[in-house]
Design a protein around this nucleic acid. Structure first.
Length: 388
DNA sequence: GGCCCTCTTTAGGGCCTT
């Protein structure tokens, strides 16, 4: 498993280009290897994961060429968040173990300081399985953050009914709050799976990108499904890339994922997750994996689906519409260059991050609009139960 | 599986995700 720190931002303005380039030069120390609770050896490596020059050029040009009105409020949200992050980050370039800032109780400091924590696991890069674990993972293991203790917010039995009601009840308040920038973290996510069956197949890769950007704004990892991958032709992820002891299983990855998201969360804030066809595909997979590993999806996580936005755009009429609502059709419609391989999680995340901003502009949607269309995982499950 | 559309709701087919 390799741990990587990513510096990315999707927003507006030439100044941001400078910020992007400045952050993209930050390098993190290298360390590897991580014994899991089950004594498996997991290779760890800290890397920098930054936007390619072509992507930066595209973002900059697309925003600079747009008229003033083109700079939509969602882009402003990203931009403001980016600046907020930059101005409040205590230590911008150093790697910090999470436990030192969260404490064993998992609580937050009153002052919002984002902890660097981005994970990248890629079987292709595992060249030194005998290396030592990264500071991050070693610290997590030392503090027993995995399923046993520290993440008391996320264990099933530890989420109280009061917490559920509190978060569900406050959702309407979020939608009405004019200053959502200080409350919401916008995360684009994508999963690659061993197949299309929500019941029988497993997640084999997951990628996240915090839209507010900045240092350590991405999370990427392969996942060991404990079974063969039969659909490698789709995403290029083969069985021998994931079914190996140095690739984490989901139960090992979830604690790290939770810590990453917490590191991006604002004080008493919410996470707004967006995926393409997420309600029908990615979210059910995520819910199943969390449930199988005895974890609860935090009640302050809200989920939305960009496919519904694309369908809404198609219904809106007009002469310049995409040829379809697939990610590929939308990418071609908005002339977004493909970075990396399509159908790899991080590549699709980067594409969707740009598509989302285009969609919200075309549909004239603001952040409150998006929040009101979102669901918590429990709301989604209840809705599904009622339908069935 | 969920959503949407239509030759529709007492249904069926297509799209989207891997």
């Amino acid at each position: 498993m390799s741990i990587c720190s990513g510096s990315e931002s999707v927003g507006d303005g030439g100044a941001q280009k400078l910020q992007l380039k400045a952050h993209s030069t930050i390098a993190e120390p290298q360390s590897k290897g991580c014994p899991s609770p089950s004594t498996r050896k997991i290779t760890e490596k800290i890397e920098v994961n930054c936007l390619s020059d072509s992507t930066i050029e595209f973002l900059t040009l697309s925003m600079l060429q747009a008229p003033r009105g083109r700079i939509h409020c969602l882009a402003n949200f990203c931009w403001e968040s980016f600046h907020n992050t930059s101005s409040t980050r205590v230590n911008n370039s150093s790697f910090k173990p999470l436990a030192s800032t969260y404490g064993i109780e998992g609580g937050y400091s009153r002052r919002w300081t984002r902890r660097p924590m981005t994970t990248k696991t890629d079987g292709r890069n595992m060249t030194n399985p005998a290396a030592k674990p990264s500071n991050l993972v070693r610290k997590i293991l030392d503090e027993k953050v995995s399923r046993s203790t520290a993440l008391n917010l996320n264990k099933k039995e530890e989420i109280t009914e009061h917490q559920q009601l509190q978060y569900c009840g406050i959702k309407q308040m979020i939608a009405e709050n004019k200053d959502l920038v200080d409350l919401v973290t916008f995360i684009i996510y994508d999963t690659e799976t061993s197949g299309l069956s929500r019941k029988d197949d497993r997640i084999i890769e997951i990628a996240l990108q915090d839209l507010s950007g900045g240092e350590n704004s991405t999370f990427q990892s392969l996942v060991n499904p404990g079974r063969n991958v039969a659909n490698s032709r789709v995403h290029g992820i083969k069985t021998n890339m994931v079914r190996r002891p140095d690739v984490p299983r989901m139960e090992e990855l979830i604690p790290i994922l939770l810590q990453f998201v917490k590191s991006r969360q604002k004080p008493e804030g919410y996470i707004l997750w967006a995926a393409h066809n997420g309600f029908a595909f990615d979210l059910p997979f995520l819910i199943n994996e969390f449930s199988r590993c005895s974890y609860e999806i935090p009640p302050n996580w809200l989920f939305m689906d960009t496919l519904s936005l694309a369908r809404e755009l198609m219904k809106s009429g007009g002469s310049k519409l995409p040829s379809g609502t697939s990610l590929k059709a939308l990418r071609e419609h908005y002339r977004i260059p493909l970075v990396g391989s399509a159908h790899r999680a991080m590549s699709d995340v980067r594409t969707l991050a740009m598509i989302l901003q285009m969609l919200t502009f075309d549909l004239k949607l603001s952040l409150p609009n998006l929040v009101t269309r979102s669901f918590t995982a429990s709301e989604y499950v209840n809705k599904k139960r009622k339908k069935s």
